[in-house]
Simulated scan of single mutants.
Amino acid sequence: MNVLVFRTNINSAQRVHQAACRLCKLKGICRWSVDLEDCDCVLRIEAETVAEVDVIRVMQKAGLKCEVLG
């Protein structure tokens, strides 16, 4: 199991919904969450086969900012 962590602009319920609509289309995600209280609006994904570039791509298609949190 891989844990992927991203800095995002997912800072509202509406943006969480936008993210959910995109993330559900990616195969291999076991669990995900967004910390709306964190200043980086951290998106944490537990996945078997999903690559960071795939997550970034689908988030950007949804109009959301997303970058790997190092």
Rank of each mutant, 00 (worst) to 15 (best):
G70H: 15
W32P: 09
Q18R: 06
R22C: 07
M1K: 05
S33C: 10
V53Q: 14
V42S: 11
R44W: 08
V16W: 05
L64F: 07
N11Q: 10
V68L: 04
A62E: 06
V3E: 06
R22A: 07
D54N: 07
H17A: 13
V5T: 15
H17L: 13
S12T: 12
C24H: 14
E67W: 01
L43V: 01
V55F: 01
A47G: 05
D35Y: 00
K27E: 08
C30V: 15
V55H: 00
F6T: 04
G63S: 07
M59Y: 07
I10Y: 03
V55I: 12
G63I: 01
V3N: 10
A51F: 10
D35N: 13
W32I: 01
V55W: 01
C21E: 12
C66N: 10
C21D: 09
L36P: 05
V42F: 03
I45P: 00
E37I: 01
I45F: 11
L64N: 04
R15K: 15
I29M: 04
V55D: 03
V50M: 00
A20W: 08
L43S: 03
I56Y: 02
N9G: 06
I29S: 02
R57T: 11
L43C: 04
L36F: 09
H17Q: 14
G63A: 02
T8Q: 08
G28H: 07
R22V: 02
E52N: 02
V53E: 13
A19T: 03
L26T: 01
I10M: 05
K61Q: 06
V34T: 12
T8R: 07
C41T: 04
S12A: 09
L36W: 09
T49Y: 10
S33Q: 07
L36H: 10
E37K: 10
K61T: 10
K25N: 12
L69W: 03
V50R: 00
A19Y: 07
A62V: 00
I45L: 09
V58Q: 03
G63E: 07
C39R: 08
A47P: 02
V5K: 13
C39G: 11
C39I: 02
D35S: 13
V3G: 01
G70S: 13
R57N: 05
E52I: 08
T49F: 12
E48K: 01
L26P: 08
V34D: 14
G28I: 02
G63V: 00
H17M: 11
V53H: 15
C30R: 14
V34F: 02
V50P: 02
